[in-house]
Each structure stands twice: as C-alpha cells, then as structure tokens.
Computed example of a mutant assay.
Amino acid sequence: SLSGTSVSRDFVEFPSTFEEDWAIHPEVIANYAKHYKTGEPIPANLLKNIIQSRSFNQGFDTLEYVAAALLDMQWHSLPADA
C-alpha cells in the first residue's frame, strides 16, 4: 500500500529528492552520517570531496543529453513516409 502506483507521486519521489537536494547539506548530513562504531560525524574534508565529486564529468553528461535531444528532434522531424 506504500509503494509504486498505490501512492501519490510526491510520496514516491521524496527519498530521491531528499538525497539529491537536502541530505548533502553539512547541517543535515551531520545528523545521520556517523561512524557506525564511534558515532563520529563524517569528517569535513571527506564531505567536501563528496560534494565536489557530484559535479564531476557534468560537461560530458550535459553534452550527451543535448546530443540525444537533437537526435530525437531529427527523428520526430522526419515525414511519415520516410
């Protein structure tokens, strides 16, 4: 009853949206990203590296999306008898 098409879209999308938009903020992640034995929070330098890695290769990813969109536009621009 709490998965898939049984719930509203916002409910299903919450976990991924939370992870993408909020969970990486230092004041939020400090509440749950703790060492499993010591309870120490994630070190600041490690968190900084994780945040910086999110934008790695974004130029290529963007170009790939644009190329796919351009190809899609070409396919949809073909006449029906082509």
Rank of each mutant, 00 (worst) to 15 (best):
V7A: 11
E13H: 04
M73I: 10
E27N: 15
A30Y: 01
E27G: 09
N45P: 09
V12H: 03
I42L: 15
F60W: 04
A80Y: 11
K48R: 14
H76Y: 08
R54E: 00
F14A: 09
L2D: 06
E20S: 13
Q58T: 11
S55H: 04
L63I: 11
A69V: 02
F18S: 11
G4H: 04
L63N: 11
Y65V: 05
S55D: 06
A30K: 10
L78C: 05
I42D: 00
A23K: 08
L63K: 14
Q74I: 09
A69N: 06
H35W: 13
G39T: 10
I51S: 14
G4D: 07
E64T: 13
A67R: 03
D81W: 08
A30S: 12
M73F: 08
P79A: 05
S3G: 04
A67D: 12
N57K: 03
S77Q: 03
H35S: 00
K37C: 14
I42R: 02
K48T: 15
A80D: 12
P43N: 04
Q52C: 06
F56W: 07
W75M: 12
G39Y: 13
Q58C: 07
M73Y: 13
S55W: 01
Q74R: 13
H25M: 09
Y65L: 05
T62K: 14
K48L: 15
I51C: 12
R54N: 02
V7N: 12
N49W: 12
V7K: 02
G59H: 06
L78M: 13
Y32W: 15
G59R: 09
E19D: 12
E19T: 10
P41S: 07
L47K: 00
L46N: 09
V66F: 07
E13L: 10
Y65Q: 05
D72S: 12
V66C: 09
G4T: 01
S8E: 10
K48P: 03
R9I: 07
I50P: 01
H25F: 08
K34T: 14
K37V: 14
P15S: 08
I51Y: 02
Q74V: 10
G59F: 02
E20F: 05
V66A: 11
H35N: 05
S6R: 07
F60N: 09
P15D: 05
Q74A: 13
F60R: 14
I51P: 02
D10R: 05
S77F: 09
E40N: 15
D10F: 02
S55N: 05
Y36V: 13
I24A: 12
F56P: 01
G59Y: 05
F18G: 13
S8R: 10
W75S: 03
V7D: 04
T17K: 15
K34Y: 06
H25K: 11
A68N: 11
Q52K: 07
F56Y: 03
A80Q: 08
S53N: 03
K48N: 15
A30E: 15
F18D: 14
L47Y: 02
D72E: 12
D61N: 09
A44M: 10
S77K: 01
N49K: 15
L78D: 04
P26T: 02
S77W: 04
Q52F: 00
G4P: 00
A67M: 12
